[in-house]
């Protein structure tokens, strides 16, 4: 990590990325878009992990990042499968239409 770039900058980047992801999750109408938002939030967490790993000089954070990335892949695969199933059953993948649990 270049010395000129402080830890804080990375954390701000991660926070911005997390906020963008959250915004996507809350506002997107398509379920695919929501999944993409979740990916952004997860990656902001990864940035945090890597930044702190470098800051403390501890490789454990890097190892964890590898784990998260692989788990994220699995999760996306599962999520997409669910979306496809929902589309098959309900003939739609728009989140606003999936309100079976409305009180």
């Amino acid at each position: 990590m270049p010395a000129s770039v402080s830890l804080q900058a990375y954390l701000v980047l991660a926070a911005v990325l997390f906020a963008i992801g959250l915004f996507g999750v809350v506002t997107r109408r398509t379920t695919i878009g929501i999944l993409l938002g979740i990916e952004l939030m997860l990656n902001s967490v990864n940035i945090n992990l890597v930044a702190f790993a470098r800051y403390h000089g501890d490789v454990a954070g890097l190892v964890f990042t590898v784990f998260t990335i692989s788990i994220t892949v699995a999760e996306v695969a599962l999520g997409l499968a669910l979306v496809i199933l929902i589309f098959r059953v309900r003939r739609t993948a728009i989140a606003d239409h999936l309100d079976l649990l409305r009180g």
Binding site: L22, I34, A95, D96, D99, L100, G103
Partner: peptide, 17 residues
């Protein structure tokens, strides 16, 4: 109170956030 249970996941995520 029933009305706040919209059934839309995004509303819940919003509430959580």
């Amino acid at each position: 109170l029933r009305r706040i249970q919209s059934g839309l996941p995004q509303d819940y995520v919003y509430g959580l956030a």
